[in-house]
Amino acid sequence: MSDLGELSRTAGKPRSLAGDAWLDLRTRKVFWIAAVLVVVVLVMAIWPSLFTSADPRDCLLARKNAGPTGGAIFGFDFQGCDVYAKTVFGARDSILVAVSATLISGVIGLLVGLAAGYFGGWLDALLSRFIDVMLGIPFLLAAIVLAQRLSSDPQSNGVLAVTVTLGVLGWTTAARVMRSAVLTSKNQDYVAAARMLGAGPGRLMFRHILPNSISPFIVVLTVLLGINIAGEATLSYLGVGLKGDAVSWGIAIAEAGPFVRTAAGPLVWPSVFLAATVLAFIMLGDAVRDAFDPKLR
């Protein structure tokens, strides 16, 4: 494997920043642990039936708080539902909400950061102060108020409300990182060269500045993904997140909380999955950022 890498390097193959980052990443244990965890969780979210044949909504009060049997390796909760199946199926909504919210934050953060960094002047001052104000608002308070307003419809399961809440509140760091990366790359010689040729703002921004300032931004988004998984669980636990027939780690933790003294399993297992997933995304983001940072090389 490494011989092949050496060979392609000496043969004059393209050695891009991403290529160098990959050479660096594949020697790191943290990256591999995080990557394996992330892949497992993603597969779990997309095809939960690969992991269990049980139905998380198939609950029998007769099995209330029963211990592990056969397929139900984590036992049953106070309603007699299969804890393992609930945990596996819970990955889907948790990941769906987190990924969608991260995408919303990403789009807002990208546009705000790019506009503030590129145009500068009063627009930058306005957007930067607005970000400062956003950062000053207590996240949990704002999220509870916003999520409750958005999910006033009792029929909805709250997925949209939580997604929008997390997405709208979470873009500030990404925008700041984007802005500073744009500030650095917009003064580069190749941007001046393109400007000299007569390139307009659109070409300068999207062809020259954006491709050269996107990597720190993407890293921030992977960390944000982890934060959003935790955020969804928090809101669901507080009762303003997912509800109804939705199955998620946050709901499972909230439901199991009052019964922790009689049965700890239903609380512990979703918590373990949640913590491992959040940690995996944050570790992945960290490792990728280190690999892409030329100053650390």
């Binding site: 891009s16 920043l17 580069q188 010689d189 190749y190 001046a192 060269a193 393109a194 020259h208 491709p211 050269n212």
Partner: peptide
């Protein structure tokens, strides 16, 4: 500077 005046991407 030929190292900074060409967009590396």
């Amino acid at each position: 500077d030929p190292y900074t005046s060409l967009n590396s991407r």
